[in-house]
Design a protein around this nucleic acid. Structure first.
Length: 613
RNA sequence: GCCGUCGUAGCUCAGUGGUAGAGCAUCGCCAUGGUAAGGCGGGGGUCUGGAGUUCAAAUCUCCACGACGGCUCCA
């Protein structure tokens, strides 16, 4: 098994070399960057000066690659002293490789992050961190490379060039931008075809496509990019999800609050956001002269509710809950569908508590997140986001250490799978992020629980302790869904638009067989019964065929469709048509109308994903 | 913001320099129906916007805007 994985890795890596070989054959002036293996394939960064590769060139490159593959050139490894390697790079005009080699010589690494830390600025003659480097040769192509590779170019499996993208040299925005050519590769043609097929399937459940088809949200270029507008159906989804996520915390004594969406700029100067985030959206009120900003976070507002009166240790923990929208000026190229937007609605909560209450508050939220996500059928894992050694964090380092220790302890206690992300912390404290895995196996951060020692300090929050002294509370930030927008982008794709009954914007559709008064009146009666049970029901009385209306209902992914005609009016029985994905025990039974509606209503209340019809 | 691709009717798309098209949707008429598309007809486009080349531009060139895929960023 491990061998297979290593072999595939070598194939992909070898393909990166073969692609570089093809490109340097076609464009001899090409300067090469790096060409590593990535998930499902490989890429190579190249710089052709003013010439740009486009996807139209792929056919030519692929043809050249196949030529190299059919020649079955052996991959030969050789070792070169570092100084000779540098000479080679200079002679070949490979400036990027030259830079890498010099870093290797100087610091023994090419990892930019490590280099930044090191203060190994000078190279003394004859002294280097690395003695020699390895090269791989196939045909006339030579590349600095650690390997390993397959034996020869003929043994690389199936591949396809996918796309070309811009990528900064060594990932730094200030560096020149190179072109990155991505390819996918698998051991066999069959696996490649399966992968490409999976991509097609993923496209079908793209939340942007489903958002339009199911009439959930729209994005108007006039209103602006990254500012989605939710239709009546989409708003039902938002509200139901939000109600569900809030219910956990309401049960634990959280109290709802409300805040305005703007604040004086001073707020964010105090909180520290102003300094750190230039994307803060500010504007000036001409009347008062006050500088105002749209809120990029909710915590400062909530701190001021806390600070509005003296607090005793007996009041703690104080728990506020609010689903509200924050505004961030994300850069234009970063926006996309609902996953990155400029108006972000968070199901946010803030707890003000003493340090010895942190653990309880935190573990309650962990518990809730676990229940919530399992009910939504999403798998969770944890990422503990801790600080790195840079100085861009607020607050006392000793407090940070305590906080990080508490978080790691809880992660272990809950026996959740976790990884530690160094440098992923928020400016004011460490975080515990919940990574949800969706139906396509992709991991996204959704829920987050964050400890904060910094903001209570900055806003000078206090409570009076048992000892009669003033103490500083600790804040715990939490969003269980994260942002409603991003959550929906994942969730819509996870369920492919087939929402469980309790979330479906329309749960029951009544289709009339004809437009006679008798039929319409009967359907209206059924609809009213359904509404009385709290169900979301629509009547389709369009003057088209029954078959067509059934199809429309199926396309809209309505859980239950029932046809109303002579038979139903006389018998008072209906034969529900159940959406194709739902587990049905006895599909074509007929049910008394009120029993049917009650069953659906119970399914809604229990938030089940199965049907008991 | 940067690199690449794309922008034709509400949607999906055809149209390579010479009179703007199809399917679906919409509207009307006929058909009054039984579990995934009934029939016929009508309306709808400054071909994203602007400038240029040309006798002639949806089509070629440049600029702007927007969308998509990446990079960078993400409180």
């Amino acid at each position: 098994m491990v061998d297979q994985k290593d072999k595939l890795h070598a194939m992909r890596h070898s393909l990166a070399h073969i692609m570089a070989t093809a490109i340097t054959t076609l464009w001899p002036e090409t300067k090469l960057g790096v060409g590593p293996v990535v998930e499902n394939g490989f890429y190579y960064d190249i710089d052709l000066g003013d010439t740009k590769i486009s996807e139209d060139d792929f056919k030519q490159i692929e043809t050249e690659m196949r030529k190299i593959i059919s020649e079955n050139q052996p991959f030969e490894r050789s070792e070169l002293p570092i100084d000779e390697a540098i000479q080679w790079a200079e002679k070949a005009g490979q400036t990027y490789k030259n830079e890498l080699l010099n870093d290797l010589k100087r610091a023994g690494t090419t990892v930019a992050k490590d280099l930044d830390k090191d203060e190994l600025g000078t190279i003394t003659e004859g002294d280097s961190a690395v003695e020699s480097v390895s090269f791989y040769r196939n045909g006339s192509f030579i590349d600095l490379c650690r390997g390993p590779h397959v034996e020869s170019t003929g043994k690389v499996g199936a591949f396809k060039l996918m796309r070309v993208a811009g990528a900064y040299w060594r990932g730094k925005e200030t560096n020149p931008q190179m072109q990155r050519l991505y390819g996918v590769a698998f051991a066999t043609e069959k696996e490649l075809r399966q992968y490409l097929h999976m991509l097609e399937e993923a496209k079908k459940r793209d939340h942007r496509k489903l958002g339009a088809e199911l009439d959930l949200f729209v994005i108007s270029p006039l209103i602006g990019a990254g500012l989605p507008l939710f239709t009546p159906r989409g708003t039902i989804l938002r509200d139901e999800l939000d109600k569900f996520a809030q219910s956990f915390r309401l049960n634990r004594g959280y109290q709802k609050v409300w805040i305005p969406h703007i604040a004086k700029l001073d707020t964010y100067k105090t909180s520290g956001h102003y300094e750190k985030f230039p994307e803060l959206l500010k504007f000036t009120s001409t009347e008062s002269g006050d500088e105002l900003a749209l809120k990029p976070v909710n915590c400062p507002h909530h701190t001021q509710i806390y600070a509005s009166k003296p607090r005793s240790y007996k009041d703690l923990p104080v728990k506020y809950l609010e689903t509200t929208t924050v505004y961030r000026d994300e850069r234009s190229g970063e926006l996309g569908g609902l996953s990155r937007v400029r108006a972000i609605t968070q199901d946010d909560s803030h707890v003000f508590c003493s340090e010895d209450q942190v653990e309880t508050v935190f573990s309650e939220l962990l518990e809730d997140a676990r229940t919530l996500y399992s009910q939504l059928d999403l798998e969770l894992s944890l990422r503990l986001s801790f600080r790195d050694e840079s100085d861009s964090y607020l607050g006392d380092p000793a407090a940070w250490d305590r906080a990080e220790a508490v978080i790691e302890k809880l992660a272990k206690q809950f026996e959740l799978e976790y990884e530690v992300g160094i440098g992923e912390a928020a400016i004011y404290g460490p975080k515990m992020d919940f990574m949800a895995t969706d139906a396509l196996g992709r991991k996204t951060q959704l829920a987050t629980v964050q400890l904060d020692y910094a903001q209570p300090e900055r806003f000078e929050l206090e409570y009076t302790g048992e000892d009669g002294e003033k103490h500083r509370p600790v804040m715990v930030h939490c969003a269980l869904l994260g942002s409603l927008e991003r959550f929906l982008s994942i969730y819509i794709e996870h369920v492919a638009g087939k929402f469980p009954v309790w979330l479906a914007p329309e749960q029951v559709r009544l289709i009339t067989v004809n437009q006679e008064d008798k039929t319409v009146e009967f359907a209206e009666g059924v609809a009213q019964q359904a509404k009385d049970l709290g169900l979301r029901v629509h009547i389709d009385n369009d003057n088209v065929s029954v078959g067509k209306k059934i199809r429309n209902s199926e396309l809209m992914k309505i859980p239950y469709t029932i046809v109303i005609g002579e038979k139903e009016i006389e018998s008072g029985q209906v034969t529900p048509r159940v959406r194709s994905d739902m587990e049905v025990l006895k599909p074509h039974d007929s049910h008394a109308i009120d029993n049917f509606l009650k069953t659906v209503s119970n399914e809604m209340k229990s938030r089940t994903t199965k049907t008991s019809l």
